[in-house]
Design a protein around this nucleic acid. Structure first.
Lengths: 202, 202
DNA sequence: CCGGTGGCTGTCAGCGTCTGCCAGGTTGCG
DNA sequence: CGCAACCTGGCAGACGCTGACAGCCACCGG
């Protein structure tokens, strides 16, 4: 299935370099804010040149948003892996659940989410990435709804966009309320409010 | 109510300067793309210094997104001006309708919307502005739904976010299909798909 | 064991956006 | 007419980001 993955000692050092940069960057971002932290400061503490940082990460925003790069694929795989009888709404909910529980530590997830949602440029970057996720999910949801891959049928896209809008709303209230509420319950209440239904009592 | 508004000859020249800059900038953006157009090029053709441009417009993105700055206020006023019996959904729809028909020319609206939706950085800027609009609408919708101004009740926020998500989806399909479809009809189909209802046959 | 090869890294220079700062000119007012 | 307020342009600089070039080191074949 997989290539023989030559253990290439080069990649190993590259991996620890990436990890070091990421650790330093996120720590500085949380300590003194994203805008107040410069590339030069990160590279100085990480012991590399600024030029190398941009070879690993395409941009400064990738230092935060790129860390959760694999989440998009996890989301798509989870949604498309749901059984055929599961509705589009339930499949999307399962995907979101997988993302939330996948991250290493809930505390770190909360910190990073707060950082993203309170920093305008990071928030914008996150929303852009979200749009790509929505496009990736479109064929999964279309086939699940029994629709042809019609570019002009807005229904599947609308449902996906709405699910993400509810996720956003739930996340915003979650961080605004200092993690007092359960984000999953908030999401269910959002969807229920939109669809004029009672939230599931699970 | 208002200050005596001294006719100040200064502001007059400033207004025509702003208009000149805007005309030149938008024309260049449409001709050769947003990223490919530099500030120096705009200021050269407009006959001012780069330093002055940044006094009128806070950033390059404002040259595009700032032109529709007043739309947010128009949206809020329209929504909050709907009669009390009108539902939250209908009020939001009326607001969106006001925005679409308010702009000077439909052709120009289409051009600018395409520019925004096909330029990543402009799209991100637009989404950020959209978030502020959502926050501004929150009290209007909360009171219309008979809810207290509860920070932790996600229902009003969820409905607003969903309406915008449907607007986004409709807009995206509108520009992807080369304005063949009616954006308002697309929006109605999006909302209907989300809420398991038939679209209104108006 | 050794030298060639290929990829990675740092240094340098540069572009573009954006921001203080100060000098100079123009407008408005007494 | 003269003063004060204001606006403008030019300069210098920070910061994010990129291309070009030279040096370095792991890998591979001999």
């Amino acid at each position: 299935m997989e290539k023989t993955t030559p253990p290439t000692l080069w990649d190993r050092s590259r991996l620890i370099a990436v990890q070091t940069i990421l650790d330093v960057a996120v720590r500085l971002f949380l300590e003194q804010g994203y805008e107040q932290t410069t590339i030069a400061q990160i590279t100085r503490e990480a012991g590399i040149s600024p030029r190398s940082l941009f070879r690993y990460f395409g941009s400064k925003e990738d230092l935060v948003c790129g860390e959760q790069e694999a989440l998009g694929e996890l989301l798509r795989a989870t949604v498309s892996g749901q059984r055929g009888e599961v509705s589009a709404w339930e499949a999307l909910r399962a995907g979101f659940l997988a993302i939330m529980t996948a991250n290493h530590s809930l505390e770190r997830t909360y910190e990073l989410t707060t950082l993203i949602f309170t920093t305008p440029s990071l928030h914008a970057s996150y929303l852009t990435k979200r749009l790509r996720w929505q496009k990736d999910l479109l064929p999964c949801i279309q086939s699940r709804m029994g629709l042809a891959e019609d570019e002009h049928d807005p229904r599947a896209s609308a449902i996906i966009a709405t699910a993400f809008a509810c996720l956003d709303t739930a996340t915003e209230i979650w961080i605004a309320g200092n993690r007092k509420a359960d984000p999953v319950a908030l999401y269910d209440r959002c969807v229920a409010a939109v669809r004029d239904a009672d939230p599931p009592t699970v």
